[in-house]
């Protein structure tokens, strides 16, 4: 891909040139400064809690601010649990939908479904939250006979529904970039349509599919409002053993984001340790999501490099 300017001119030539360049770099500076400030805030403001003991902060099972106990384990567990449930729910449906739109449906129908999916990816999360409160919560309560429908499972399923359109839409985009010649060549070699899709189209679109899924997982981990409304927000419910794990999913839980979205934020500001612990939850969320993003990028590059080694520069379509 060619950028607009292959070679930027070395130095400004007139006042307009200078103005545009200075303004543009200033704008970049402002945006980067904002995000630098955000990261600095997360690190510096969580220091009081970190100094009080990292082990207790990250691994502590209890969070009870009146007695100044701040352990995040149950929230980390909650975030991991809802993210995994959401991903497990959304990934197969999203990939299947993407293949259906890109490869199987007639053009007109595909275009309708594609637009619908793109639109659904833009529905505000609070609307999903409302749907969750009024439909999914009673559904989970009835289906599993749990005392309340506000559970980690509910949060996870709702996240799954929410990220489904995003992952499907991005995956479909990745499948569509595979050139038609690749499909034609595969069919000409005697592969049937299913084999062509699986072994050629999906195979070539792998880097894009990975990116789509990772983006969805990151969204799920960071989503606040919808999860807040259905997850029950009960502190300190960590399963005691692996055997308790399934039943823990059917109880009210807390995630990093549901805690950060709660009114405790206003209460915490007065106390250095309480506020520091809350910001530390934000820092953990940030580090988790960034690690995921980096892993996704790394995996993508790795796959692209392997494909290039296997197929030549242009990924199986070498001239």
């Amino acid at each position: 891909m060619q950028r607009v300017a292959s070679v930027p001119a070395a130095r400004p030539r007139d006042a307009v040139d200078l103005g545009v360049r200075a303004g543009a770099w200033l704008g970049v500076g402002l945006v980067l400064a904002f995000f630098l400030a955000l990261v600095t805030f997360l690190v510096v403001q969580s220091l009081p809690a970190v100094r009080a003991g990292v082990g207790e902060l990250v691994l502590g099972r209890h969070w009870h601010y009146p007695s100044r106990v701040f352990g995040s384990a149950s929230m980390i567990f909650g975030t991991v649990a809802v993210t995994l449930i959401g991903t497990a729910f959304a990934a197969p449906l999203a990939f299947g939908t993407a293949v259906t739109i890109s490869e199987l449906l007639p053009r007109k129908l595909a275009s309708v479904l594609r637009t619908a999916v793109e639109l659904l990816a833009g529905v505000p999360s609070v609307v999903y939250g409302l749907l969750g409160v009024l439909y999914l919560v009673p559904l989970v309560q009835d289906a599993f006979g749990s005392p309340s429908g506000d559970t980690l499972l509910t949060g996870g399923l709702l996240l799954g529904v929410m990220i489904l359109p995003t992952v499907a839409s991005l995956s479909e985009g990745a499948l569509r970039t595979v050139p038609a010649e690749a499909r034609e060549a595969a069919r000409a070699l005697g592969l049937n349509r299913g084999e062509t899709i699986l072994h050629v189209v999906v195979r070539q679109a792998r880097p894009g599919l990975v990116s789509a899924l990772v983006l969805g997982v990151g969204r799920a981990a960071g989503e606040t409002i919808a999860v807040f409304l259905v997850v029950g927000r009960a502190d300190g419910r960590l399963p005691e053993s692996a055997a308790e794990f399934p039943s823990a999913l059917l109880r009210a839980g807390q995630t990093l984001t549901s805690k950060l979205g709660s009114s405790e934020v206003n209460i915490a500001y007065g106390s250095e340790l309480h506020w520091g612990s809350l910001v530390a939850l934000g820092l953990m969320l940030f580090l988790g999501v960034m690690t995921l993003h980096a892993l996704g990028g790394f995996l993508r590059v790795l796959l692209e490099r392997r494909d290039r080694a296997a197929f030549g520069r242009s990924g199986g379509n070498d001239a």
Binding site: L93, F95, G96, Y128
Partner: peptide, 28 residues
Amino acid sequence: ARRVGFEAACVGAGVVSAALLFAIVAAT
């Protein structure tokens, strides 16, 4: 058989997704 199975699974996923999306819009 494998081809039919694979395509049916994909279309099934597509139908489930479309139904979910429709249900979300319809409920709202």
